[in-house]
Design a protein around this nucleic acid. Structure first.
Lengths: 345, 345
DNA sequence: CAAGATGGCGCAATCGATTGCGTAAAATTT
DNA sequence: AAATTTTACGCAATCGATTGCGCCATCTTG
């Protein structure tokens, strides 16, 4: 319909050169105020839209940050994304979000697509499956800023934004021990995913510190989905020793655990106490409300974006940092019998 | 570090023209099999990555579909997105997702950004606030395929993918009536958002058909968030007449309603029965499990993407269709007292 | 064997914006 | 008034891929 209008059209209309139009639109100082104003007015009048493809081609910058996450519908992650978007948009960057569904295959495909799209930076939270990292090599090779959030890898020398998962695991477990439980099970994710390994180490450390003997049977590895949470708990309950408490490495699986326990006619925390991880909204909604570890998710997203922008502005910065944020234990009734806790306001 | 290599570099290495390289890479028939093979091998060997910016600039197609949704973390929507991605990716299209947070301001910003990014097509589910639609005009003017999913507008002559919300509202309400309830409240969204209006019309129709007098007090409008669900229910319970049942226009608010009812020491469905909408995962997890209307969300996403692709392939197709899919009532214990329903497997 | 058909490829323009360098005019200094 | 500096802008190359048109060599056909 309408022909797409370009700086050449504006230039012609104003009898100036395209170079001047380009500079005027970018508020280049070497163009007089009068000309700049005239160009901008004409641009608006003619319905000009800059061709960012041409611009990006020339400047080699797409003003775009790519994001790869396992799932976009998990509360923790979508909150991280909000943080990223807020910071990025404020600086004029667009954000392209993709999800791996915890599959290496899709993570690789996403990485390729974002690389092909020439994103200026990349923020990643790893898929559960991921063990190899060659799909990130192109980014590293071309010095495209790469930041991991939460699910990170220590092998690649990149920025990482996370909490102290060891400490969080330790605190969660110690809390259960303080409530008087000693037979404490742990639902965890794949061992090679650092955050889960560290949460487990924290769990083990708390047990050790309190001279509680570890029983390997009480540790169940899974994808930490709702369904797997239920199945893992089934397994535990069918095992030789019934746990008195369970520390789950995320809330999603903890919710599955609750359902399983209820279905068996048992009570939480009466028969089995529970601690989750992430403080998803459902944690406060489910019956009983879930004690859990809260992470500053949005803050993590903001910082991740800031790290990218920092390196984009100052390419000489190559040293990679690991930024560790505070997490905290949120007490609710799934693990506390003593004081009565009502549904929160 | 590594210099970015182009078709010119490949051309030089192979002593052919860049045109031939370009054609070979695109498997153009006018290039011999031998040359094509040689070019592809050399491309791989030299670590070539096509510059899609240059390509898009020339071809005026970005192979990208934009998506604007209110929230990416709502189960219904993230499932729609999955459907879109599946179809789009299969056809070599990328998907750019953005969220409006139900704010017109952000929806407009998203539309502008996607327009500037020159997406080939746009899929939208409207923000709760949205009343004006001029931000979509640029797309319509340039004949960029535009499809609405779920939260649509009938004013713009564009494709729409949805369920029969009137019928769904009718069925949900009739179900409650069949259970013997007559004082049925309805939590709904902004009246100008068609889907909510139609669900309400269905609700009204069911009441009318059963000669149940409508009481305006029983209809509460809100943003349908969890928090607003709780507040709306507070209001209802503090009102002059207590409802026997509530039909909520989404599950999120229904969950808030459940919490409110529980907090008051009342029972669901004993004191108040409940029907939600969307069949979010939480609907089957919450206690009691929620009767709700299930929408074929992923299917809706797939069809939306297919519509875009169809128009992209055949630009002569301008007639816009409204595709109506089947929804169905999922019975759970929040509305059914007669038969015992256990936690589903 | 000549004429036409076909296959395989190159030339060069093009998409639209950016930018280093150069220069004329205006402003300032001497 | 001449010299110098500053201001404001234009020229033309460039980013990398695509594509209409044309050309030559080989092949087919009468």
């Amino acid at each position: 319909m309408k022909k797409e209008i370009t700086i050449y059209d504006i230039a012609k209309a104003l009898k100036v050169s395209p170079a001047t139009v380009s500079r005027a639109l970018n508020e280049h100082q070497s163009i007089s105020g009068r000309t700049t104003k005239a160009v901008k007015e004409m641009a608006k009048k003619m319905g000009y839209r800059p061709n960012i493809l041409a611009s990006s081609l020339r400047t080699k910058s797409t003003k775009t940050i790519g994001v790869i996450t396992p799932w976009i519908n998990r509360p923790f992650i979508s909150s991280v994304i909000s943080g990223i978007e807020e910071v990025a948009n404020k600086e004029g960057y667009n954000v392209i979000i993709s999800q791996s569904n915890d599959l290496l295959r899709k993570e690789v495909a996403n990485a390729k697509a974002l690389f092909a799209s020439r994103v200026d930076g990349l923020i990643v939270s790893l898929a559960m499956e991921t063990l190899r990292f060659d799909h990130f090599k192109p980014f590293v090779d071309r010095k495209i800023p790469l930041v991991f959030v939460d699910r990170a890898s220590s092998n690649l020398g990149t920025d990482r934004i996370m909490i102290d998962n060891f400490e969080a695991g330790y605190i969660a477990t110690r809390h259960l021990i303080e409530q008087g439980y000693t037979r404490i099970a742990h639902l965890t994710g794949a061992e090679h995913r650092e955050i889960y390994r560290e949460r487990k180490e924290g769990y083990l450390s708390a047990l050790r510190e309190n001279n509680i003997e570890l029983n390997e049977e009480l540790i169940v590895v899974s994808g930490l989905s709702y369904q797997e949470g239920r199945e893992s708990m089934e397994k535990l309950l069918d095992g030789t020793l019934m746990p008195q408490a369970v520390f789950c490495a995320n809330d999603t699986s903890a919710v599955g655990v609750v359902q399983c326990i209820k279905k068996r006619g048992l009570k939480v925390p009466g028969d089995i106490a529970l601690v989750g991880f992430n403080d998803d909204p459902i944690a406060s909604i489910i019956d009983p409300p879930l004690t859990t570890i809260a992470q500053p998710s949005e803050e993590m997203g903001k910082i991740a974006a800031q790290q990218i922008l920092k390196k984009l502005r100052n390419p000489k910065l190559v040293k990679s940092e690991t930024i560790v944020l505070k997490s905290n234990l949120v007490l609710r009734s799934s693990s506390v019998v003593s004081k009565k806790i009502t549904i929160p306001e």
